[in-house]
Design a protein around this nucleic acid. Structure first.
Lengths: 334, 334
DNA sequence: TTGTAGGCGTTATCAC
DNA sequence: GTGATAACGCCTACAA
């Protein structure tokens, strides 16, 4: 059976003490140049790799950050993970990825497992079921910093990095209006996310800014499941005065909306203007892509969230006021 | 600053020794029922969580498996990760995910980082640059089992779980021929993957089975990058006698091929039959989806690979003969 | 400049 | 049935 090299082995072969080896390896100031060299040389020769489990144990730090997202199938989150990993790995931190699959139960399990594994910090995009945050508060209480990504629970005081969806919604509404639309629908996401509320406010303020009355009938909420998405469009289209343009919470929602319109409302579909959030690259392969999309910056969001979290992780005793950072979206035409 | 509860704390409050507490917590046979109860009760009350870093250190096991894939943006791998995670978490193992981004350098780094973190086993889909496997062999030599996923280096003796791409290619070719095609092109992936070679053999044998001569000119190889993909189609289409149907290494390749054909060969495009591997769900949103796709079973592949790896991890001294497992694909019509 | 000793939390061995 | 003790690999006061 294979047995990894330890500093003990090095110490023994060199006839010096383990502490000297340890110090030499860590480039400690008061170690003789020759000793340092001898140690480093032998370490390299023996292919010594520090035992991280021992270091983690000793230092009470795992150099591991957790990230919990709803699903890896959504490219927004995958790309955010990439941004996060970039920052983390630059700081020599590992990343533990968990998917809640939009289940609160699973999310709690993940938090608990990660807690047990002593992660040093957590980045999380809460599930759509997450209507309370006891599990996150508990982490925080144990001294593990928590930062939210994209989705933040309303009325909670976690730091959060997300898109400036408010501004984006106003931009979209303005574009619709400049193209002559007066009846503009909106299919929103779950109302217990701040990011849904912000989209809504942007939509409403966009209308008001252009002196168009806000009509509650034109606003639908969906849990982002296909069935719900399609129900929402249908309700809008069956209004006495249906919308001629619709703003959508997300591009994935767009796929369902487009199929539904094409099948069930073929007469209105060709003139319908749609804008979603996300700017999925796959639309460029469509023969008739949607009008536009609000392009977010998931990679940068992951990076910012990573920096914020690392900042907190690396200064444990410091008090941090919750920060709300939002990065701009850009109207993207296909 | 927060300080986690340890068995020491429990021992002290209960005026018993740490070893008794440890045994009670682990349901050791020779501990009195009452003692056991008292310990368990107090542990629950104090919300004691075993320090995994200490256990990892003590047991020389991390209960962590690594998985390295080219990218999380490819849903084949994401879904495989999910299958893998299911199996791993059932066995109480964590999963460390790494993306090589098709870079051998990055892949080696990941392997080395994971090695340093003392993962108990590794599942890997090698990058497209991976033409040797010293880094994987080294892992294996240190007693860390390695299993390949989907992509296996040719002439190497790792266990591998993948799709039965050979059978699938023959099925696709048969379908083409039953639709009257005689000139059938093939755009393949990198030739140093066994999975490319197998696809090729299936394609060739499919032709021969139907007494159609194999024509080397109709076979192209691409590194799966957009530029290369489009080059490959163009070369095929500019042949004196171009193909009327094309088999593609992968559906992501399909997207590039379709755009290219639509733009540059609008005359031939409508009658061109295309079949890829993967059956991406997004095609169902297309107005003119491809003829069909060879639907793989990434989730099941992840599961099988997970079971295989766990088997090896949990029986360290046992010798395992490399296994090649391949799961069937199914022709999927859009 | 180098060495000694103690300890991080847990488990395992062995004595009582 | 319970307890004392050593050990895992590493780091770090502190002593020499």
């Amino acid at each position: 059976m294979y047995k990894p090299i330890t500093i003990k082995d090095i110490a023994k072969t060199l006839n010096i003490s383990v502490s000297t080896v340890s110090k030499a390896l860590n480039d400690h100031p008061n170690i003789g140049a020759t000793t340092k060299e001898r140690v480093l040389a032998l370490a390299a020769k023996l292919d010594y790799t520090p035992n991280k489990t021992a270091i983690q144990f000793k230092q009470q730090k795992t150099f591991t950050l957790g990230i919990i997202i709803p699903t890896l199938l959504d490219h927004f989150y995958t790309i955010a993970v990439n941004g996060f990993e970039k920052i983390a790995s630059q700081a020599k931190y590992n990343v533990l990825i968990g998917q809640s699959h939009e289940s609160l139960r699973r999310e709690k399990e993940l938090v608990s497992v990660m807690h047990g594994n002593r992660i040093d910090g957590l980045l999380i995009a809460i599930s759509k079921e997450t209507d309370h945050t006891d599990h996150l508060r508990k982490l925080k209480r144990s001294g593990i910093p928590v930062v939210c990504l994209a989705r933040k629970p309303v009325n909670e005081t976690f730091s959060c990095v997300s898109s400036d969806v408010y501004r984006a919604a106003r931009d979209a509404v303005s574009l619709f209006i400049s193209r002559g639309h007066q009846r503009i629908g909106f299919i929103n996401g779950p109302s217990h996310w701040a990011t849904s509320r912000d989209r809504f406010l942007g939509y409403r303020d966009g209308l008001l800014q252009h002196k168009i009355a806000f009509d509650q009938q034109l606003v639908e909420e969906s849990d982002l499941g296909t069935a719900n998405n399609q129900q929402a469009v249908k309700r809008l289209m069956r209004l006495p005065s249906p919308p001629t343009a619709i703003l959508l919470f997300k591009d994935y929602l767009m796929l369902d909306v487009m199929s539904c319109l094409r099948k069930e409302f073929p007469a209105q579909y060709p003139n319908m203007d749609l804008i979603g959030y996300g700017a999925l690259p796959l639309f460029s392969h469509f023969e008739k892509p949607p009008l536009a999309s609000l392009k977010e910056q998931p990679f940068e969001i992951g990076e910012r969230a990573g920096s914020l979290l690392l900042e907190m992780v690396q200064h444990p005793q410091q008090e941090f006021n919750p920060q709300l950072i939002s990065l701009p979206c850009k109207l993207h035409y296909f």
